[in-house]
């Protein structure tokens, strides 16, 4: 099991974080592009959440510290974001 601090993690996997940032920024652009179209925006935010969980699994698998508890944390954060944005879309 490989336990390292943020600095080392970031310097060891800059491409991982760059990929995450790119995917999320593309999602953000999609949310802007489909402004006033809640169905499309909901589909985009769900895709952003799913891609985030997938990113987490790949990142930790690469680190050799993948565990069900860690996957659960990514799923919960993704669920939280999707739920919060979804409730906003419902009321928009």
């Amino acid at each position: 099991m490989n336990r390292i601090i943020f600095e080392k993690d970031f310097s060891r996997h800059p491409l991982h974080y760059f990929t995450l940032l790119c995917v999320q920024v593309i999602g953000l652009w999609g949310l802007f592009w489909y402004a006033h179209q809640p169905r499309m925006q909901l589909a985009i935010i769900i895709s952003m959440g799913v891609s985030y969980v997938v990113w987490g699994i790949i990142h930790h698998y690469d680190h050799r510290d993948l565990h069900i508890k860690i996957i659960a944390e990514y799923i919960l954060i993704a669920l939280l974001a999707v739920l919060i944005f979804g409730t906003l879309l419902i009321n928009s």
């Binding site: 943020f6 993690d9 974080y17 952003m48 985030y52 987490g56 990142h59 565990h67 954060i77």
Partner: peptide
């Protein structure tokens, strides 16, 4: 041994 806070930060 947890998920990555910086990744959560970027996403949120």
């Amino acid at each position: 041994w947890t998920s990555k806070s910086f990744a959560h930060f970027i996403f949120l």
